[in-house]
């Protein structure tokens, strides 16, 4: 399963990655994105993630 994490605080993103790995080692984290702008760009290209973990407030807005 491909997972994308959108979270601007590195410690919080790190924790999600760690928890995901604990649950299932086969989960593939596509990356950690910190801004809205970056997220918009990323979602327009493949591979599309199966699941997104998204924070509600990022560095450049809501």
């Amino acid at each position: 399963m491909n997972v994308l994490i959108i979270e601007n605080e590195p410690p919080a993103a790190g924790k999600i990655v760690r928890l995901l790995k604990e649950i299932d080692k086969s989960i593939k984290v596509l990356g950690v994105i910190e801004t809205v702008e970056e997220a918009v760009n990323r979602l327009q290209i493949d591979p599309r993630p199966d699941l997104i973990f998204m924070d509600i407030q990022l560095d450049d807005g809501l």
């Binding site: 605080e9 410690p11 790190g14 924790k15």
Partner: peptide, 14 residues
């Protein structure tokens, strides 16, 4: 508290 919870496992010193 969230930050502490994120750090405590991997970076106990931080």
């Amino acid at each position: 508290l969230n930050t502490i919870s994120s750090l405590i496992h991997t970076q106990p010193e931080a």
